[in-house]
Amino acid sequence: MRLLPFMLLIGALLADGAFAQDIGNNKEKVSFRAVDIFVKSKGQPLAAYQVQVAFLGLKTKISGIEGGSHPAFKKPPLYDPKAMQTEQVIIAAYNTAPAEDLPKGKVRVATIHLQITGSKAPEFSFKLITAGTVEGRKIPAKVAVEWRKKSREDRQ
């Protein structure tokens, strides 16, 4: 009971602050960008991969995930649906096709679409959890994440 006046006061102050913040947030620009996820399998056929990507900053949200460029990884990768509208995700995919149908070298395996609030592009961190070739053998692959360049239509 003794907390009531204190809580009321705090509530009034917070409401005032939230209103001011809301006015400020309305000025922030919202944009959509995409990052391409590449796996470099160093000449070995890539049969499976698992990558964790995190975007630093609370104003970045994952809005969509699509598959890669090679037919073996054309379908969207597996991911936790909870990753949507958050800033990090674990993506993974595999293909049991024969070695000749699997990509080698640097291949785009997925694209992550982001909703960014504000004018500053977020930084990101990424980690290859695992990558394997046929027979499920691990390979010393590397991962690269690149901002997708805006097309001429996007810029206009």
């Binding site: 049969a47 499976a48 991969y49 698992q50 597996l78 993974a92 995919a93 595999y94 049991t96 959890i129 695992t130 394997g132 046929v134 027979e135 499920g136 691990k138």
Partner: peptide
């Protein structure tokens, strides 16, 4: 437990 386990079982 990672995607290689799923891949191994699927194969």
């Amino acid at each position: 437990v990672d995607i290689l386990d799923a891949f191994t079982l699927a194969s």
